[in-house]
Simulated assay, not measured.
Amino acid sequence: MTRRDMILAAGVAAAWGLNFLVIDGGMGGIPPLLFVAVRFAVVALFIVVVPRPAASWRTIVGVGLFMSLGQFGLLYTSMALGLQPGLAALLLQAQAVFTVVIAAGVLHERPTPSQATGVVLGVVGLGVVAAGRGGEAPAITVALALAAALSWAIGNVISRRAGIVTGRGRWGALSLTVWSATVVPVPALVLAVAVDGPLAVSAGLAAFGPAAALSTLYTAGLCTLVGYAVFNGLLARNPSAAVVPWVLLAPVVAMVAAALLLGDIPTPAEIGGGALLVMGVLITAIPPRTRRRLPRSVRGTAAAGDAAAVDNVRGQPVVRD
């Protein structure tokens, strides 16, 4: 990666990490599911400029229900019930571990030894974090955050099963994100009315002030639309193995920012368990190097130094964050 691309990758990770603090700061007095509905209504507006992804409506709906509604509905609810932003960012990274496990059962993708090691480290890290969480993080909030990570992982597997390549091309993951966002607002609003009641939803809409509006613009505009656009560009110019590890800066940024700005000091168990979880995610995220016997014509080209020809035959792994 060039220095410019490394700066862009670090910037996207920082924006995604601060996202958790921005959500926490803008949600005061607003039912979490209503906040989710508004966020994805803003994202869905961009279907007028973003082309539809090469996917069936069944896949788009599935991704919208699990990767968007399920993930963020559960995440926002856990934070509304008191989960600290830094811990929320960390627990959500469990999606990578869950994705490997679910893909093994549903898609029959046998984990590599390194991926199996990463899953074990991730599970141990989660156990340490859950056992040593601070007193201000009720068990139900941790469970909801892990359920959000599980929902994200299911969305990942739905996308993989449909054979959608979301990390390449002009629009990449952004097109699937925008179009699947159309699935979210109505169900989220219905759930908000069912869970919190119509009076609470009405009061939440009345309380939707500048802080909530800025939070929505940040999460929908900067993190989703701009963030994915930049991230897709990085994936198009660099191997996934060089780009994906930068995403693991997000929970670090979130935890450091929460400690400095909100006074949420992580416990030693959260730090140690978080380090194990991040290490496990890193191991599972980096694709293994595989050796394939290439056609003779390509082997000759590769010997002459044409690395691009080799990449076209081997294929580049893609990752959707």
Rank of each mutant, 00 (worst) to 15 (best):
V42C: 08
D264V: 00
G135Q: 09
V195P: 01
W152H: 00
R292W: 03
S180D: 10
L81H: 02
P288T: 08
A275T: 03
T290R: 04
V38T: 00
R320M: 06
R52G: 07
T2R: 09
I271D: 07
R58S: 11
A96L: 10
L277W: 10
L83N: 03
L282T: 09
A14S: 03
S56M: 15
T290G: 07
A285T: 07
A153C: 04
L262R: 06
L234T: 02
L235W: 06
A139M: 08
T284Y: 00
A15Q: 02
W16V: 08
G82L: 02
L222E: 13
R237W: 11
F208P: 00
T117Q: 09
G227W: 15
T182D: 04
T59D: 13
N312A: 11
L126K: 11
R160E: 12
R292H: 07
T182V: 11
V129T: 08
L235S: 14
Q71M: 14
G29W: 06
R293K: 10
A206D: 05
V319E: 14
S159M: 09
A212T: 03
V128E: 12
V252R: 12
A309P: 00
V281K: 05
F231E: 12
I164W: 08
S151R: 10
G17V: 03
A200C: 01
A149G: 05
V49H: 15
D311G: 00
V129C: 12
G73S: 01
L33G: 01
I60C: 04
V61C: 06
M79R: 05
H108L: 13
G127C: 14
A258W: 00
V244I: 04
N238F: 07
G17K: 05
